[in-house]
Amino acid sequence: MAYTGEVEVGGPPDVHELTDLIITKAAVGPMDNNAYVLRCRATDEQLLIDAAAEPHTLLEVIGADGIGAVVTTHRHRDHWQALAEVVAATGARTYAGRLDAPALPVPTDVPVDDGDTISFGRIRLTARHLVGHTPGSIVLVYDDPHGHPHVFTGDCLFPGGVGNTHDDPAAFTSLLTGVTAKLFDVLPDESWVYPGHGRDTTLGDERPHLAEWRERGW
């Protein structure tokens, strides 16, 4: 079946099969978070983005091959509730944005800065640091050599707007400016967006609304 990105807590994951990479998206409770298991086709090495909750569910999606790394997109608790259990079960190396890493419940092996590369197997992800939702949020960009980019945005970008900036105008301006400069200004419309909650989107679907978001202030 074709990938839709439509998942729900308690339901099956959805799988997006690319030429070099397999992306498995699962929803976990209690806050309907998305977690993503990425598998390099060439080596079968895996990486998890956001050990959000339900460690048993995530470990089932990960499977017997385990994971070599887990990346936490930002410090908010709903994105790391299963982190300690998943790391204990897999021995995975931990990555997180440098400014958010101290708030996580397990030590971060590799603090991540803007432009850093996270590699597993033959896959390379580029981290972009965005300030506004939290001080140290990161998004991850996979520039597919056989197609368009794929972007894992945590809580920085969703269908319909940027992430929650808690009615702070400076934080909102920072986040929208960062998303515009580091994603919309440099990536094509076809770029697929995998957010931390809810359904997927593309940069092309969201690009026409940037001015509207700035005007409304959220």
Rank of each mutant, 00 (worst) to 15 (best):
Y142S: 11
R122C: 11
V71L: 09
I22H: 04
A35Y: 07
L58R: 06
G11A: 14
P107S: 03
H148A: 15
T90M: 05
A26P: 06
F158G: 06
A26F: 06
H166F: 11
P102M: 08
C156G: 04
R122W: 12
T24H: 13
T177E: 15
T57Q: 08
G161T: 02
E17A: 03
P107T: 07
Y3N: 00
Q46M: 04
P208Q: 12
G10K: 10
A26K: 06
M31N: 07
S137F: 00
H133A: 13
D50R: 08
R98A: 15
F152V: 10
V70Y: 01
H150E: 10
G204D: 12
P145D: 15
E190L: 07
H197C: 04
D189H: 15
D109Q: 03
L21C: 09
A101N: 09
H133Y: 14
G97K: 02
A27K: 07
E215T: 13
A96V: 01
P159S: 13
Y36Q: 00
T24P: 07
Q81H: 10
H74M: 05
G115W: 03
A181G: 03
R207V: 09
S174R: 11
A103Y: 15
L183G: 11
K25S: 10
G160I: 02
R214H: 15
V61M: 02
I22T: 13
T19E: 15
V179Y: 12
A35T: 09
D185Y: 10
P111C: 04
T43W: 03
G198E: 09
I138G: 01
R124Q: 15
Y3A: 05
D20G: 02
D44R: 08
F172R: 12
S174N: 14
T134Y: 00
H146K: 08
K182I: 11
T73L: 14
L157F: 14
H16M: 12
V141M: 02
T173Q: 11
L210W: 04
T201V: 03
D167E: 14
Q46S: 06
G217K: 07
D144C: 09
V28D: 12
H74L: 02
L99G: 14
A53K: 00
W218A: 11
E190P: 01
T117C: 04
A53V: 05
Y142A: 10
D50F: 09
D14Q: 13
R216Q: 15
G66C: 03
T134I: 07
R98S: 13
F152A: 05
G178I: 06
V110H: 08
P188S: 09
V110E: 05
Y36H: 06
P12T: 01
A127S: 13
G178S: 12
G132D: 00
